[in-house]
């Protein structure tokens, strides 16, 4: 993973998309920021390797919108970490985003496969 490839990926990943991915991740259960980053990397097989730091502004934004809440708790290693949980309206938002994404992805796929 070179910095240039990372920055290339980052450009393709708008803030809205990152938010959607975080919501999707948290849908699986409560976890802290680092875990979210690991999860995203692993699931996307490093293709979607975002600059990890940009996760935190996204988490703040999600909290400001009320889609995610957080709580400080002890991590398994004994350190204090902030654990994020998706809220009911966050799930609703995830649903909307997913439908929208499916529609667009389908549309793009149709266009790309034509000719």
């Amino acid at each position: 993973m070179t910095p240039s490839s990372a920055s290339g990926t980052r450009a393709a990943l708008g803030p809205g998309t990152l938010e959607m991915l975080v919501l999707k991740t948290l849908d699986a259960g409560t976890m802290h920021g680092y875990a979210i980053a690991q999860y995203l990397e692993r699931l996307s097989h490093d293709v979607l390797s975002v600059e990890q730091g940009s996760l935190y502004p996204a988490l703040e934004r999600l909290q400001a919108k009320g889609w995610v809440t957080s709580k400080w708790a002890q991590s398994p290693t004994g350190r204090q970490a902030r654990y994020y949980t998706i809220t009911a309206s966050g799930r609703k938002q995830l649903g909307t985003k997913k439908t929208e994404y499916d529609r667009i992805a389908l549309a793009i796929a149709r266009v790309m496969r034509s000719t």
Binding site: A6, E51, G53, Y56, P57, R61, Q63
Partner: peptide
């Protein structure tokens, strides 16, 4: 891998 922590911190604060 993280990027500029200070910048990210500022960004995070701006989000609220």
């Amino acid at each position: 891998a993280f990027g500029n922590p200070t910048y990210m911190q500022e960004e995070a604060r701006r989000m609220t």
